[in-house]
Design a protein around this nucleic acid. Structure first.
Lengths: 139, 139
DNA sequence: TATTGTTATACTCTATAACTATA
DNA sequence: TATAGTTATAGAGTATAACAATA
């Protein structure tokens, strides 16, 4: 039979990784997308919703819903930006930090499982190659 | 800054490839998903809708809609399976074959553009590595 | 005038449940 | 009883348009 298309491979690689990450994060009450936002907001420089949205390549209206969900779970907090009152500074709560601690380890383990069919060298190479294919985050 | 997560890289690699393939296929009046179905149905062995769905890892109800769309465009034809009247044999029409001829070249070019930041060796390696990460199609 | 956050809304993709017809 | 196709429907996930507050 013919080889699978690149699009098929990327789509299904994505699906499989999403399943593994989703299962790994379930005990923490968040999904992969919420984890990505939470991890990004755990930053030394204060980040507005728009900053975060640009970094993740999603729309600012989507970010509103993500931050809403994280705030409902008491994992992040909105506060007004001191110098520009149009902006929110969004930052993890104490609970958010604790959650993130465990969640990072869980996600690392899920990625490791996803890559377990590869040698360490090939796994690293996959990362390097993908980074060269993907436009760097804006901001 | 920290390195992007594997999930981010796979998602955005997918998005970029989809855009390129979508643009390449626009002149043929089909999108990437329809192309995948049409290319799969262009097979020496007759394929039912369920066969095709399993191969692409999508639901059979999704396949109904895809075949509907391709049939409306006169690119495929349903006919009853000679030995099992529960099944449809779905096969490209003459127009489907002609469309596929050009579309394959367009998609190959789009993939090449997607991979253009990589050496030929790295591009081949990406394929090999992804194939090892993705479960092979059922059937 | 432009930017940030927000809301309402709509669109795409996909799956689940229930039905029909065949086996 | 199980399978193939179909329909109706619902759920993610996402974006566009329009608005208020602020710059």
């Amino acid at each position: 039979m013919s080889r699978p298309r690149l699009g098929y491979l990327l789509k299904h690689a994505n699906l499989r990784l999403s399943e593994l990450v989703g299962a790994a994060l379930a005990p923490y009450g968040i999904d992969g997308r919420e984890f990505a936002v939470l991890a990004l907001l755990d930053s030394p420089v204060p980040m507005s919703q728009l900053d975060a949205a640009r970094r993740l390549g999603i729309d600012r209206t989507t970010m509103v819903a993500m931050v809403d969900a994280l705030e409902r779970k008491d994992l992040v907090r909105r506060r007004p930006h001191p110098d520009d009152r149009r902006k929110n500074v969004v930052e993890p709560t104490e609970r958010g930090h604790r959650t993130l601690g465990g969640a990072r380890i869980a996600v690392d383990a899920a990625e490791e499982e996803f890559l377990s069919a590869l040698s360490g060298g090939d796994a690293g190479l996959l990362r390097d190659v993908l980074e060269r294919l993907v436009p760097p985050p804006a901001g």
